[in-house]
């Protein structure tokens, strides 16, 4: 298979996602529009009651806003990943694509770059908006340094693309977008964080994907708790890579072996 065919297949995946209007709008809202709204509210509070509310911007508030963006962007990532993974099956065109003779692994393999082509620009735009707001509204607070912003960017990309990858793999495995979104949002927003609070699980909690990504935060937050803070960086990277590999492996296996 030539690079040209591969790039056209990735473009086709991107087209399939981009033309889903509701998916695009919700992703846009979650990644790009919510953060400036939050900054606007904080700015209004600061202007109306400066004694109780500090400036909306600054490095610390950037961290808070990006943690929120990681949650919202993670939701968008789950939606995009689940759609990319189960879109062909749901539409009933998977068998037509298989009947072209093209490798099933190639059909699966182009889903991820196609999904990332839609998602990554959105999340980077959200990051850029948050950074600009944090600088413009810093007031007396310290501006975030370029190093800090880059560190946050790296963490944000990992924290939001991992749910996308998990969703893509699981929806390819299950063949259902709806079930995948439900399961993963439950894991990301509820089950993962709750398990992280169960002390009797000990170091088993290192295997929780949400906590592993929180370990990459440039400034430790309360969200990951002691587990994320004490997790060795190498362990966090291995856990993240393992989650991604297992999800993609399961999706690829199912795509390769299922009856079309």
């Amino acid at each position: 298979m030539t690079a040209h065919i591969l790039s056209r297949m990735v473009s086709a995946e991107f087209l399939k996602l981009r033309r889903r209007r509701s998916l695009l709008w919700w992703s846009l809202i979650l990644c790009c529009l919510t953060v400036p709204v939050v900054y606007a509210v904080l700015a209004v509070l600061h202007v109306t009651d400066a004694a109780h509310y500090g400036p909306a911007g600054g490095a610390e508030n950037l961290g808070h806003s990006l943690e929120a963006l990681s949650l919202l962007g993670g939701i968008a990532g789950v939606m995009i990943g689940a759609t990319a993974g189960a879109g062909d099956l749901g539409a009933g065109v998977f068998r037509d694509l298989v009947a072209t003779g093209r490798s099933r692994l190639a059909l699966f393999g182009v889903r991820l770059p196609g999904a990332l082509a839609l998602f990554v620009p959105l999340i980077i735009a959200g990051l850029a908006i948050a950074t600009v707001c944090s600088i413009l509204l810093a007031g007396s607070l310290a501006n975030p340094s370029a190093t800090l912003v880059l560190h946050y960017a790296a963490w944000l990309l990992v924290a939001t693309t991992l749910p996308l990858i998990l969703a893509l793999g699981i929806s390819s495995l299950l063949g259902s977008r709806t079930i995948t979104v439900g399961v993963l949002l439950g894991w990301q927003l509820a089950a993962g964080p709750i398990l992280g609070q169960l002390g009797f699980l000990g170091r088993l909690r290192d295997g929780i994907s949400v906590l592993a990504t929180d370990r990459l935060l440039p400034v430790p937050s309360g969200r990951g708790g002691d587990v994320a803070a004490s997790m060795p960086l190498a362990v966090a990277l291995v856990v993240i890579a393992a989650w991604a590999a297992v999800a993609l492996g399961a999706g690829a296996w199912r795509t390769r072996t299922m009856d079309a």
Partner: peptide, 16 residues
């Protein structure tokens, strides 16, 4: 793909 046009659907198949 019902959300794509006829031409876009053919483009998807042609890409493969």
């Amino acid at each position: 793909h019902r959300h794509l046009t006829g031409r876009e659907n053919l483009a998807v198949a042609a890409a493969v």
